[in-house]
Design a binder for these strands. Sequence first.
DNA 1: CGGCATCCGGGAAGATACTG
DNA 2: CAGTATCTTCCCGGATGCCG
Lengths: 230, 230
Amino acid sequence: MELENLTDSRIARPRRYEDGCGMAHALDLLGDRWALLVVRELMLGPKRFSDIRADLPGISANTLTQRLEELERSGVVLRQTLPPPASGQVYGLTEWGYQSKPIMGALARWATRSPGHDVAQNFSPVSLLLSFQAMGQPGLPKDIDATFGFRFGRESYVSWIRDGAIGAERGDASGADVIFTGTPRAVASAVYGGASLHALEAEGALKVEGDRALASRFVTLFPLPEKAVV
Amino acid sequence: MELENLTDSRIARPRRYEDGCGMAHALDLLGDRWALLVVRELMLGPKRFSDIRADLPGISANTLTQRLEELERSGVVLRQTLPPPASGQVYGLTEWGYQSKPIMGALARWATRSPGHDVAQNFSPVSLLLSFQAMGQPGLPKDIDATFGFRFGRESYVSWIRDGAIGAERGDASGADVIFTGTPRAVASAVYGGASLHALEAEGALKVEGDRALASRFVTLFPLPEKAVV
DNA sequence: CGGCATCCGGGAAGATACTG
DNA sequence: CAGTATCTTCCCGGATGCCG
């Protein structure tokens, strides 16, 4: 009796859309609630279950477990067991999963043109760094060659701009030409909301170290695309 | 009492993800079940309610109504009332909605690399034509300059290849250099499944008119990307 | 034909609590 | 820390019926 209700992880979930189109298959892979945001959180390197959960406010442990299982089964996510002493598990993207990055960037860029998009929301650390890469398309000034560090609570990230392109990864912020310390939201309010760095520092929302002129220029590098006229 | 449960269409649906990231907003716009496929169906020109529904087997009238409402409210879809004698309404994409096309193409291309993707499924007429545009990226042979007509039941489409690029729209197939008549699935089995045109014609699944050599070449132009190794 | 309103059943998501 | 168990709620799909 109970066996009929058994959901066996070895049995692939049935297709949701009977459709050979690649877009429909993309929805089978990433169309579940939260799935795309889980992938986003792994885009700058593997993370632990709790860290993903912490950066995705609103997701339940239950749902995150399920999404990670499905993404692993479909070959987008890879579960890795860390060697001691840092024992535990982390989830990362497969090579193929990682290749969705520019597409997601383009999608994000498209969506910011929505009249309903409000940039004064929360950003996760990863989503902020990714947004720089998305909004830095198609080109940044070629005369910049510098590194930028970000310290958000326990997580820290480094981004570099060179030859008109921008990269980013999780890592040590020390030694960067500019270091921002605060919340992703505070940085976003400077970059996207036009808030002044001085004001943010005055109210204690942000700390800026290093080359201040470079910092002031950094926040102007990522103009949002124009809103769509509807 | 009942008023508390009233869902007023004038009140915007609350954000589902409290997240300023563009990708999260994209999910607010297109993340609902079927939403992306509805947009896909409009990508080659406006369609009527029933025609959308007919090409999305499995969607309920109820859900389609709701998706169209939401997409219209968010500025992706535009509802137009046709003048007599063709009275009735059609749904089309806004300029901004239409601009998601290359992104969706890239997403579809990415998804076909999935080990779980099976091309031997149903295609809607629109999804087939769009798949040609997606798989024809980044380039087609520059020595082709021709038009291709497709007749799928009542709907017919025209596609043209020139200067290494491919375009498509709903329209009259007459006068094209090659005309395919049959089901989208039959054409897909030739283009993506390696089925021979002769065999398909022999079993009555497809009719090919016009330049047969060109038709034979056409079906080789859209190789699927390699499967991802996982 | 082109929808919209309503009720029903199933399943996925959320909240909370609990376990190794 | 990394999940599981349970309960509740909400969304989706199917069917039906109404209306212009």
